[in-house]
Write a protein that binds this DNA or RNA. Structure first.
Lengths: 229, 229
DNA sequence: ATTGACAGATTGTTGAACAATCCCGCACTC
DNA sequence: GAGTGCGGGATTGTTCAACAATCTGTCAAT
């Protein structure tokens, strides 16, 4: 019983130890391709072609497809194949409705002594990335900010739905031609939300967030309409 | 162009037309077995046995397993197999935290002219089932009530996460020995929430719901502690 | 211009096979 | 007796090849 402190900590490393299944690794490869925009929405993913390209069997590949389909990055049409998801304007509305509900609700019910470290770190990362002109990093820091906000709920399930929603949104962000002008204005808002949280004004933080989510939504749908679909 | 009115309506029937894949049907069979409690939590599902029992190949069966694992009804342990999920007390807490966040948030942002038909129907079904002593039906009507509440958001994604959470909760409900004493008290609460909604008092409706969810959570965790795990 | 039929390509599903891993019982040591 | 190391059997992970079912596109017929 002398080593109980050890084993407790080790349980956290377990995930890193169990090497992912082949399907999981294949899914990871495809996921990054999709979220980085290198596989544009609507692209059809052939089982045959990708199977030989990655050196995995069709069955394993199909398993990877299922994973990504469940994350809504791919859509699976029976007897037709899988396609990179193409989001509609309705989807964008729905995603932001979901975000306002969840992120706003989480902020409103955040207790005064909640640990804001992750939120603060994301804000600072974004600011330093902007100072260095690394606009892509500004975007990912922004993602991390919202992920951290959702994590304030202390709920694995809330965190997971947020992760899915943000992954979906990346499919949309690629329609924005200029990442700088899109992401930059929100840095100050993120900082302000953090300040409000630290001062204990959770209602104010929630309102600020909801307002700025609505603004972002409008900006996105406008850009969306411009591209035709 | 003369028949455009027709084809519009037909698009709704499309879902019923596309017969599900074999894996999908297998998943449906297993899903109902699990949510009905005939496959108790912790049961191991052998690929071999179930495969021959249902007359499908192992590959297809594994695909069905994956579907259910994503819905968190099964857990997949690498090289060990799949098991019917066994929820911990922490899971119960998390599920109710999620529900308070989502259902409460939805009610609070419901507009005065929202269509309450589905909510009302669920309340009435529950009441008539209770009058007839059909306690199992009372339980399902209760589920439907909460599903209808979530649907007030008008968001497919909110609806889907709610569906998943409620399916998970069914794994827990089976520890309640007496379905009557557990479900019956909430009938009046559901009716009250409906009344508050119809009178436009969304904040009151949300508070009532959140309070009663907390009560149900306490009741469940207590029964859970009694059973040992 | 619409319909019908045919051919080619792709997916859905199966069965078998082999490697990798886990579980369980047994002997062995201290 | 408790703990350790070691097979043997069973189960899962992954691949492969094959066939059935379905979709897509083309071309002729009306």
């Amino acid at each position: 019983m002398a080593s109980s402190a050890w084993v407790e900590e080790l349980s956290g490393e377990r995930a890193a130890l169990t090497r992912a299944s082949t399907a999981g690794r294949v899914a990871e490869i495809l996921r990054s391709r999709i979220t980085e925009g290198r596989l544009p929405p609507g692209t059809r993913l052939s089982e045959e072609d990708i199977g030989v390209a990655l050196g995995v069997s069709r069955n394993t590949l199909r398993e990877a497809f299922r994973l990504l389909a469940h994350e809504r990055l791919l859509v699976h049409e029976f007897n037709r194949g899988v396609f990179v998801r193409r989001l509609t304007v309705d989807d964008v509305h729905d995603l932001y409705r979901f975000r306002r509900l969840v992120e706003g609700g989480v902020l409103r019910t955040t207790s005064a002594d909640a640990p804001l470290d992750d939120v603060r770190r994301a804000v600072e990362e974004g600011e330093s990335a902007a100072a260095g002109g690394r606009w892509v990093d500004v975007g990912t820091a922004n993602m991390r900010f919202h992920q951290a906000v959702a994590a304030l709920a202390g709920s694995p399930r809330v965190e997971e739905s947020m992760r899915h929603v943000l992954a979906e949104l990346r499919l949309v962000f690629h329609v924005m031609a200029a990442p700088r002008t899109f992401h930059e204005p929100y840095l100050a808002e993120n900082r302000r939300i953090l300040d409000l949280l630290e001062s204990g004004d959770v209602a104010g933080a929630a309102e600020t967030l909801e307002r700025y989510l609505t603004a972002a939504e409008a900006q996105l749908t406008e850009a969306y309409a411009a591209t035709g679909c």
